[in-house]
Amino acid sequence: STPQATQPVEFNHAINYVNKIKNRFQNQPEIYKAFLEILHTYQKEQRNLKEGLCPPGYKPLTEGEVYAQVAKLFQNQEDLLSEFGQFLPDA
């Protein structure tokens, strides 16, 4: 089965970005891992939300909260953070 019809340009951008982060934090794998965890949590919650698995009143991670967490992680890495912002809807 094909993955969701994502625009190839966005997909390529995402691949390049993840690769860049991986390289940047080669010597700090825990930062890279934390980044993956944040995205993983977000994705999981979005899926649960879509499938109606969240209890009423449950507040999943918003894009803004994801950004805030990543910002904390990427301190002093302004370029990575601003590039990350390009993936998010303008709040």
């Binding site: 995402a14 993956l36 993983h40």
Partner: peptide, 27 residues
Amino acid sequence: SYDFTPMDSSAVFTLSTMAKKSKESDS
């Protein structure tokens, strides 16, 4: 060359989904 683990691929997928969402909410 890219040496991606399943977690890496999952991050790529999440990012591109976010980007798509962001584009949709643009107009």
